[in-house]
Structure formats: C-alpha cells, structure tokens
Design a protein around this nucleic acid. Sequence first.
DNA 1: CAACTTTAGTTTTTT
DNA 2: ACTAAAGTTG
Length: 771
Amino acid sequence: MSADPFDPAGWDDAPAATPATAVPAAPPPYLDGLNPEQRQAVEATDGPVLVLAGAGTGKTRVLTTRIAHLLHLGKAWPGQILAVTFTNKAAREMQQRVAGIIGGVAEGMSWLGTFHSIAARILRRHAELVGLQPNFTILDTDDQVRLLKQILAAEGMDEKRFPARNLAGLIDRWKNRALTPEKLGADDAQSFGDGKGRTLYAAYQERLKTLNAADFGDLLLHVITIFQKHPDVLADWQRRFKYILVDEYQDTNVAQYLWLRLLAQRWRNLCCVGDDDQSIYGWRGAEVGNILKFESDFPGALVIRLERNYRSTGHILAAASGLIAANEGRLGKTLWTEDDMGEKVRVIGYWDGEEEARASADLIEGMRGHGRRLSEMAILVRAGHQTRAFEERFVTVGLPYRVIGGPRFYERQEIRDALAYFRVLVSPDDDLAFERIVNVPKRGLGDATVQQLHLLARERNISLHHAATLITETDELKPKARSSLRDLIDGFGRWRAAGRDLPHPELAEMVLDESGYTAMWQADKSAEAPGRLDNLKELVDALAGFESLAAFLDHVALVMEIERGDGNQDMVTLMTLHGAKGLEFPVVFLPGWEEGLFPSQRSLDENGLAGLEEERRLAYVGITRARETAIISHAANRRVYNQWQSAIPSRFIDELPRNHVEAEARPGLWGGTMGDRGFGSQLREADLFGDRGLSPGFQRAATAKPVRHLDASFERVTANENTGDDFARGQRVFHQKFGYGRITNIDGNKLDIAFDKAGAKKVIASFVSKA
DNA sequence: CAACTTTAGTTTTTT
DNA sequence: ACTAAAGTTG
C-alpha cells in the first residue's frame, strides 16, 4: 500500500489497551440495508468466521461494514485490525469504502493492505533475524531470473537444458508452499537440473542475503520463519492484531494460510471471506483446500453463506448456478435473486473467429443505438491473444475500446532501466540494478568488462559498484572502458551529492539526462521511442507524490501499477476472465467457448479433472459478471498461430441449463452450404442442441459438419487464387502437409520449395499459401 | 560490439 | 504469425 515503509509510524506504538467500549445509543445506520446473513457476518465479531460469499452477494460490503462495526463498538483501535487483500486495487477500494462509512477515521487503518505489503512491513522490523538489513530491496521476477541465470552459470549448468525461468517458477511454488531449502522433501529437492534443485535454491537464497534482497515469496516466508523461531516476536504481533479480516480467502496459498494462522492464534478473531466457486488461481499456488477445511482448522467456526445475489437477473444467475453445479467438492451455495428473470443467456455459434468479432461489434453497435453506453459492455476472453480479432474489428469500424491487462507500466523496459538508475543511486551495492544499467546507454562496457568486475567483486567480497570504483584506479581495463566506467561512477557520486539539496523529482530528471539515458531514446527513431519518453516523463511525475526516492522504490516494488485516468471515456472493455473477477457489467460478451480454448487444452493436460473444474469456475466467474445480458459465443473455425483449426463448442455450453439459454446459429452454418450464409434468423433451440435430449454427444455430431465444409472451402479458395503469380523466389510459404518452407524456384504454377521439416519438394502453387 | 539470422515457444497474473 | 531471445556473422 501507500504507507511509507521507512515511516516509523505504527512501528513502536505498543498495542494499546482495549479501548473503552462506547455503547451506541441506537443501532448504527450502516447496518441498515444489510440482509440478515450479511448482518450476521458483520455482528459476529468474535471467534473464527467463514463467510461464503457467492458472486454478487455483497462481500466487500460485509468486510467494510464489519471493520466499521468493530471500530464503532470500540472493540479495537484501527491499528489493531489487520485486513488483508490480494491486490492493491482491492485494498484501495476497501480503504475508501471504510472511510466512506465511518468518515476520516479510516486514516488509522494502517494495517489494511495486501499480503505482501503487510508482510514487507513486518519483515522490515525484524530483517536482521533472517540476515537482512531493514532497507532490503524487493526483487521482481525479472531480477529473480537474472540472478538465477548467474547462479546456474556459476554451477556450470546448461541454460538450454535448465532454463532459469523454470527454476524461478519452481522456487516460487516452493515458497508458496512455505518450503525453505531445508524443508524441501526429497522429491522436490531432486526435481531440477539432475537433482540439484535444493542446492540451487539454497545458493539463490544465499545470494539474496548477500545482495540484501528479498523476492516476493520471501516477504511471507521470512516472516513465517521469524514467527516460528522467535515466539516473543510472534507474541507481540499476535497481541497487536485483535481482529483479522481476509478478502478472497479462496485464493490464499499455503504460506499465506500459515502466516494467517500464526497471527490469529491468540485472539482467534479471524474472519475470512471467499467463494470456493471463484477460485481461479490454482495455477499460481492458491489452495482451494484452505477454504474447504476452514471449519476443521478453526473448530467452532461460524460459517455464514451469503446467497442472495444483488447483481444479476434470474436467467443469468440460474445459468451460472447450473454450470457450476457440475463441479464436485464444492461447499455448495444456492444463489437466488429477487430480480426479474430478465433475458436468457444467449449462445451464438459462428463460422469463424472473424465473424464472431464482426457480429459482436454489430451487436454492440445495436445496443449502443438503444441507449447502452459502451462502458456498460465488456468482452471477457480466456486468453489475452483473443482480444486481437476484436481489436482489429473495432479499429476498422471505429468503435472505442480499451484493453485491460497486458504489459504493465513498471514492467516496461525504459521504466525498469530508469528505476535501476534510481536503485543504484539509493543503494550503491544493488548489484542487479548496477549490472542492468552499466552499459545502458551503450558506453563500451560490454560483457568482458562486466566479467572482470564480477571477478574482482567476488574475490574481494564487495559489490560491483565498489569493484568498479577500485578497478578504475588500476590499469586492468582498456583506457576507453576505464574512462567511461570512471565517468559513470563519478556521475553517481555527483548525483548522490546533488540529491542532498535537490528535490528528488528534479534529481531523477538530472540522472536520466546526465547519464545519457534520455538522449538514447531521443536518438532512437523507432516507432516506440516517443512513447517511451512519455513514460519516463510520467515516471518522474509519479515520483513527486512520494517522500523520497527510497520510499518511491519501495512502493513500486509492491505496487506494480500506476494510476491512470482514462476511465471516464465511453469505451468497450476488453479483458481476460481472470482480470474481470470482482467486476460487473450490464452486458457481457463471452467469446471463444470452444473445446481446447475454453476449457483450455493445456489446463486439462496438465491438471486433469482439477484443471477442468478450475476452468469451469472461470466460466462461472464470466457469466456472473453480467448484470442483464450475457452473450456466449463459439466459432467453428479459428486461426491459431496462423493455422486454421476447427473446434467443437465447449462442453460448458452443454452444461448450461437449457431453460435459461437461448441458442442461435447462423443458418448456413449448421445446415446449408457456405454460400448462403447470411444474416441469421434464429433457429429453434433444437437446431443447435438437437432433438434427442440431453446426451452430450448429440451436439458434437451436429457441429462436426462445418468442419468438413472448411477444408473444402479452403481448397477452393486456394485453387482460385494461387496460380503461382503471387509467389516470388525466397517467399515463405505454408503447405497443409509439409508445413513451412521457402520457395527456391518457380516454374509456371509449379514451385520448388525447401520445406523446413519435409525437405525439398516440387509442389503445385495452389497447394500452398503465403506464410 | 552491433547487425543480422535462426529458433523456440506461444493460458491465466499478483505481488 | 509473431515475438523474444540466443546464435552467427562482419
């Protein structure tokens, strides 16, 4: 969160005695309008409570009201309530809503934040207990991988066979499970690089310690270690946090669960809010098990179900509920609403992905014509790349849209470079940052020079920056390298001195200018360069909101986003289903419901039934984002990696309860020939689902047809177009059987092609297409 | 050291 | 098709 980690506020204020209990005269106004279950969840202040909050049942309202209630009753001071979320966005929202209920007092909610930001604050106070200094750096994934690369190289391991990225993922998963190198089971310890898993992990942790750095996983893991080894420290924190609240509990991993359990042990006033049906982050370590076994972990826990939905109409809710019912091992909830049935969920079949995008854009325009605002509509996709077809279509028809997600501000190259400069400025011994910018912009300090620095640094056990200072005083380097290294080191000295009486935004600008970094992008004439310069400007602007560079850097490490103000324009929203969790829109488009895509084949292959169920929960999350209109679609054919693939409709479509769904298909698609595909009248439901009832196979059979049409049509198209005239020697081409190749010779409509895989062949032009 | 070529991978994403 | 990253040249 925005709390300055170096700000001692809240560090040494001993937990206050229980505040005097102010007895409220009348029932507090914030309780009005809560339904009985919500009210119960708010009023059951003491003891463990699990709130199973279905989609749209007022989960955040319960959490925030509960905090307000605790404060109102005088059960605790703001500083004695720990409220954790997963994302900064959720933390911010909660902060605001608490403030909204109780007025400015929420200022004191200093322990409302993400798991990581709160763990980081705790860790800074006890860093020395795990061999770190209080000002340790927080590494992101990028730094992590670069560090691991060095470690793998040092161990003499082949980066090809054992990619650093994989090891990073593995270590991350271990940390998610609260496993330190010593605690790794024999299997895990052996699991990477010829059984070197544990050794590499231990070496990595050693390096982190030397660098005075922690990665994201460490923030929690170190705190757990400290709590386990120092009961006095744990006791202090336990005493402080009289009430603990957890948002999105279904997303907690083992480490987070342990961390919570340790902290909650004393007062046992732990309130977890979550929805097992919305657990969609299993792939990054979330344990649905945490929510499923809450009652046994906290005996006597009160379990409250919030089942009244305030978001969606009846048909939408029923469709979603019917779908999720196919999952096993649920805690089970029955959502209901007093709202109208509304429109049925629409299921539309398209010929291909382009038609899907075109028709969806038409539907959007149509609804816009009927008074819908674009900002009321969202397209939620399974995978990021699916947005492309829609973007292309929206651009051609001039429909304003915004894509949420994608590369984030602080992950951009220029921003990370600039931050590395700041990091070296603030902590000269930050080797990773130093290495990143030592030759950016190019100063003639290549691999060879850096290797020499590494050598000296390791020999003397000093940082790269220090080594660089020393080496410029010798003649070990070539004169050119020496003088530019000298310049860089002097630069940092000068900037550090200047920083003493210059406001830090100006200092930052000075660093970027004098180091030549700004000039580098000004000289770059590629298309992205101007944008990058804008981003740098934005970065410097963002700095102004912070006390110091150090405070800013810490903020950046934990909050990887920047506030942007493009929210007020009327645009359609495009994003992934994962990104949509917690949001709602009057109109939701759910394209790409095809086997292989959704449920994702990969998920099925890697995680079997568990994977399928998580995909189904994702589908459930998707449908329940809709307030009034949900439109599911699937395409018979789609171009994937430049290859046409046919797919049958998703099994999730079969699983939707028939009574709440209205199926449509374009005529020619399911019966006639390609040529008379036209604008679609609706078909009877039976045309899509078949007349034979509920067997899942029928739909497959029905939809297998267009697949055959596809192949025929392509032969026809290619035969008409490719007479050989379009091709040139050297042209990359694609052949249905032989794959990719390059044209070596042309003889009329016969081509000689050197195929990548299949070797040299003579082929008729009509059988290949341009790649 | 920079420019060019080849090759592998290509779900979801926070902190 | 596309991208990013590694390998190969001049």
